[in-house]
């Protein structure tokens, strides 16, 4: 092989890698024209967002515009609230998760959730918490020790807790608890992880740790994160969707797209105002 040929191959390879990075990734999860009601009150209208595989999508918007409500429709937690109703579709693996023959338990295991307030089970040990998803859902996975180490490592907590796996989860700091909860969610092997303001109860150092975790996870999991922290959205999210609800009007998506566009070059005046902290 001559040098020029060799160089040609390298160039080709580089082009390939570049193409891979910019090629549109397949959509893992998609909300299609989703509207949501609590009783008679409509709180969300016509929300359509695609969540490409292994990307991070940030949902931003002022308080009360329906971000939490929306994220809860994505794994069928919304329906557990009495009086909750929904229109539209949420498509996962090519199927509407709300269709009759879909088991909500399967959906909730494939689409995990991390809440605002760290919520490990206080009566269980650290190890017990990581494995609790398996226990609670009756899911069988062998090699518990490996699962514990692997998921805690992914969640960035392994080094801190490996010598006290049998201690109470309640003894951990808030940031550690939140990472434990992430490990717990990962232990059931989800494809999608929903996070509703996962850092809002945490200090800046823990927040950075969690953001690091999110970035690491995004190579294997599709992540949807609600955040009030604009810098956080810029730091972690590939895409961003901006929600807004005006008075007496249900929330809707004003603008969505690649994060750098939403923050650097928004098309809508309201988006521009919001990302620059002018309201909300």
């Amino acid at each position: 092989m001559s040098t020029s040929e060799f160089e040609e191959i390298i160039v080709l390879e580089e082009q390939l890698i570049e193409a891979e990075a910019t090629a549109p990734r397949p959509v893992e999860l998609a909300a299609q024209d989703v509207s949501v009601w609590f009783g008679k009150r409509k709180v969300l209208e016509g929300v359509s967002i695609d969540f490409p595989k292994n990307t991070v999508t940030a949902l931003i918007g002022p308080s009360g515009c329906g971000k939490s409500t929306f994220i809860r429709t994505l794994n069928r937690l919304h329906e557990l609230i009495p009086g909750a109703a929904l229109a539209g579709q949420v498509v996962y693996e090519g199927q509407d998760i709300y269709s009759k023959d879909v088991d909500p338990v399967h959906i909730r295991l494939k689409i995990g959730m991390v809440f605002q307030k760290p919520n490990p089970f206080p009566s269980m040990t650290i190890r017990g918490n990581v494995l609790s998803g398996l226990k609670l859902s009756g899911m069988k996975r062998s090699g518990h020790d490996e699962i514990v180490e692997e998921t805690l490592t992914k969640a960035g907590l392994w080094k801190e807790v490996k010598d006290r796996l049998n201690h109470a989860a309640g003894d951990l700091s808030g940031g550690q608890q939140q990472r434990l909860v992430i490990a717990r969610a990962l232990a059931v092997n989800p494809h999608v992880l929903l996070m509703d303001e996962p850092c809002s109860a945490l200090d800046p150092a823990s927040t950075l740790k969690i953001e690091e975790t999110i970035r690491d996870l995004s190579s294997s999991v599709t992540i949807v994160i609600v955040t009030h922290n604009m810098q956080q959205a810029v730091r972690v999210a590939d895409n961003t969707a901006f929600f807004l609800a005006s008075e007496n009007e249900p929330g809707h998506v004003v603008e969505q797209g690649v994060t750098t566009d939403i923050f650097g070059n928004p098309q809508d005046q309201r988006t521009l105002d919001y990302v620059n902290g002018r309201f909300g």
């Binding site: 794994n75 338990v105 919520n119 998803g133 226990k135 717990r184």
Partner: peptide
């Protein structure tokens, strides 16, 4: 605590397992 109920719901557990383990 509602957070714990939330947690168990999100882990796909039934009412029965929520009661039993949480």
């Amino acid at each position: 605590p509602p957070e714990l109920i939330n947690a168990s719901e999100a882990l796909g557990c039934s009412m029965w397992t929520m009661l039993r383990y949480v």
